[in-house]
């Protein structure tokens, strides 16, 4: 059980680095953005995992959970807003990629640098 106690954090670590790999190793700009969303998702998972309390309820009061233990509402609030902000900034990134494609005719990073060097 002690070993499983950190499983969520390990999943977070691997997810984070999967996204990181896509950002640093992939040349395609849209693939980089997908990697960035994976990276974000990993951070979301970390926050929500940290806020979870074993045996707790979701932090919503109902008629019959007056005395029960609640999970931490604060990380949930932070991530709730972060998800919507995340999609807006991703859309901004996609808009930049679309403009780059219109100007350079490609979304591969190395080809763009090749064109710039000429």
């Amino acid at each position: 059980m002690e070993l499983l106690g950190l499983y969520h954090y390990w999943v977070f670590a691997i997810l984070l680095m999967t996204g990181f790999y896509a950002v640093v190793a992939k040349v395609n700009l849209i693939k980089k953005l997908i990697g960035l969303t994976l990276f974000q998702a990993a951070v979301f998972l970390l926050y929500i995992s940290v806020g979870m309390v074993e045996g707790g309820d979701a932090p919503i009061f109902t008629a019959d959970n007056a005395d029960s233990l609640f999970s931490n509402p604060l990380p949930q609030v932070l991530i709730l807003t972060a998800i919507v902000v995340g999609i807006s900034t991703t859309a901004l990134g996609l808009a930049i990629v679309v403009r780059i494609n219109e100007v350079y005719g490609t979304i591969e990073e190395d080809e763009i640098q090749e064109i710039d060097r000429r």
Binding site: L45, I48, M52, S71, P75, Q76, I79, L80, I87
Partner: peptide, 18 residues
């Protein structure tokens, strides 16, 4: 996963947005 981690609000947002 968010739903299992007691974060119903976040799960709803992630499903609609993501």
């Amino acid at each position: 996963n968010f739903f299992l981690l007691d974060a119903a609000d976040v799960a709803l947002t992630e499903a609609a947005v993501g």
